[in-house]
Design a binder for these strands. Structure first.
Lengths: 135, 135
DNA sequence: TTTGCTGTCCTAGAACTGTAGGACAGTGGG
DNA sequence: CCCACTGTCCTACAGTTCTAGGACAGCAAA
């Protein structure tokens, strides 16, 4: 887990961490069951308060991405997504709609949009299978 | 333009308006060149300060979605997107990646994801052509 | 010009958010 | 048990954000 934060990015540090960890999990760079860096050492390394890391982990836990074993640490969840199917569908639909609306305003056509989507799906799929076999 | 705001949604009012207008434009419910509701009447109707509406419009203008003609009002832009191609690509890619990462964590597979994307593309396309011809 | 509309700038206060430090609770090896 | 580690809760404060009201500038019809 290589985590980097940008203090002058405008974006809150804890959200930068949330995004990076979500992304890393989707790319297979962080695998189910694997432990996340523990809060205090990571806080020291990144030069932030431990509660900033704790807040990121709490957010990830509420999203069902990680789980906390009291006294042991935080781990990437094996079976992600604690939400019901309708809730999951709604969450995803919102994201998809945002992308589709964005494409409209950027005047990017259906074909190019679909090509980009497939490209990114390939990218994440390739990455995660790489990490499954080798690494 | 039917705009509705939810004061207990947690989301800032001006952002609710930005989203609704972007969405309406993408769905063809608001067409290029068409005027937006003027600030003061809309503010009164929605029971918010005029600056809240003004802030939403300012944000939309900075996104290249609408334009302001001094003394006349705000109108949906005809040729949207004042950004360069690399910037547009990066903006869209960010949105797409968010959706793809979300799908991963919701354990929604590639096929269902692609089906949903196409469904939403169809939805917006259909809506906007409906509004082009009829109504 | 006057009137009434359009959006805009400036300022201010209330509310919220992000970050931080102290004290506490669960776990496991010596 | 005791110590060193794990994460958590509580409180606090600085900074930002959101919303709001007053005064101002551009446009157009009477």
């Amino acid at each position: 887990m290589i985590l980097q934060i940008d203090f002058k990015a405008g974006k809150p540090v804890y959200l930068q961490l949330v995004d990076q960890i979500r992304y890393a999990a989707a790319a297979g760079r962080l695998r189910p069951g694997e432990p996340l860096p523990s809060i205090r050492p990571l806080a020291e390394e990144l030069r932030v308060n431990r509660n900033t890391i704790a807040k990121a982990y709490a957010e990830l836990e509420s999203q069902g991405v990680i789980e906390t074993l009291p006294g042991k640490g935080c781990f990437l969840k094996v079976n992600s997504s604690p939400f019901t199917k309708p809730v999951r569908d709604k969450l995803l639909l919102t994201e998809i709609d945002e992308a589709v609306v964005m494409a409209h305003h950027l005047q990017i056509g259906r074909d190019k949009f679909l090509a980009l989507v497939q490209e990114r799906l390939d990218y994440f799929e390739r990455k995660s299978t790489q990490h499954d076999s080798a690494e």
